[in-house]
Simulated assay, not measured.
Amino acid sequence: MLATLCMTLLLAGCANLGNSAQLQEPEPDLSELAHEAAQRMVANNPDLTRYSPMIAATFVSIDNLSQSSTFGRISSEIMASALAQQGMQVREVKMRDSMFIEESVGELILSRQVQRLSSQHNARSILMGTYAQGQDYLYVSARVVRAGDAMVLGSADFQLPLDNNMRSLLEAQGGW
């Protein structure tokens, strides 16, 4: 009888462990977090969409503002898409050859070029962002700045677990 009781408790414990593992939700991915960040930006400044059209710069490493990665390029693209879904008009600059594009870096906007580029693209705002790699997380800071004076119109931050997928996207920045 003792053996039967022990076996019943063991099976009940295993059943509960299996259920709790199934109830655990997956961590949000880059796309989800970028869309939530865009929603927060617009919610915190409903007038943000008045500063359309916007151009997007590649997100860069906080440790070297002239360096980016596949992560920096795709996070900028996803964030621009998310802001467009929130009502921001986004001007696609890859179709023109007037913005400096370096194959391994992407579209980098340096402060001295902001005025010229925003004027050339008739942009009222610019999406910019930085990221920093920690041991377990990748931290992202995104902001929309007014082209005329670089005043921040909206900003949002989020973090992603630093898993093998994120490490792969960061490898293009010269190692992680």
Rank of each mutant, 00 (worst) to 15 (best):
Q67H: 14
V60W: 02
V60N: 02
E36S: 11
A38T: 08
S52R: 12
M41P: 06
A34Y: 06
A43W: 02
A37L: 05
N44E: 12
V60C: 00
A37N: 06
M54F: 13
A38D: 10
Q67L: 13
R50Y: 07
V42D: 05
D63Q: 15
V60A: 10
A37T: 13
N44R: 09
S66R: 13
Q67K: 14
I55W: 14
A38G: 15
I55E: 10
T49A: 10
M41I: 00
M41A: 00
A57N: 12
A37P: 06
N64F: 03
Q67M: 14
Q67D: 15
N45S: 06
I62A: 15
S68E: 10
T49F: 09
A57T: 01
D63A: 06
L65Q: 04
V42P: 11
A56E: 09
V60L: 00
D63V: 14
N45E: 07
L48G: 00
M41C: 03
L48H: 00
A37R: 08
L65S: 01
L33R: 12
V60G: 00
S52C: 08
F59Y: 08
R50T: 03
R40A: 09
Y51H: 09
T49H: 08
N45M: 00
N45A: 03
E36Y: 08
M41H: 01
R50A: 13
N45R: 02
N45D: 02
Q67S: 13
L33A: 09
M54V: 05
M54E: 05
R50W: 09
T58D: 11
M54H: 09
D63W: 12
Y51T: 10
E36G: 10
T49L: 07
F59M: 11
R50C: 11
Y51R: 02
L65M: 07
N64D: 15
N44S: 15
H35E: 15
V42K: 06
S61Y: 09
T49N: 13
T49Q: 07
F59A: 08
L33D: 04
R50F: 05
L48W: 01
Y51I: 01
P53F: 05
A37G: 03
H35N: 14
A56S: 15
P46W: 02
P46G: 00
F59H: 03
S68C: 05
D47H: 00
S52P: 15
P46S: 10
I62P: 05
L48M: 02
A43Q: 04
A38E: 12
A38P: 15
Y51Q: 07
L48R: 00
A56C: 10
N44G: 07
S68Y: 01
E36L: 14
D47R: 08
A57G: 08
T49G: 06
N45F: 01
L65W: 04
M41S: 05
S66A: 08
A56W: 07
E36F: 08
S68Q: 02
N44A: 14
R40Y: 10
A34F: 07
I55K: 13
P53C: 04
V42C: 03
A57E: 07
E36Q: 14
M54Y: 09
S68H: 02
S68D: 04
L33F: 05
P46E: 06
R40L: 15
S52H: 06
I55H: 09
L65T: 04
T49Y: 03
L48A: 00
Q67Y: 08
L33W: 02
N64R: 12
S68N: 03
A34D: 13
S61K: 09
I55M: 14
Y51A: 00
R50L: 08
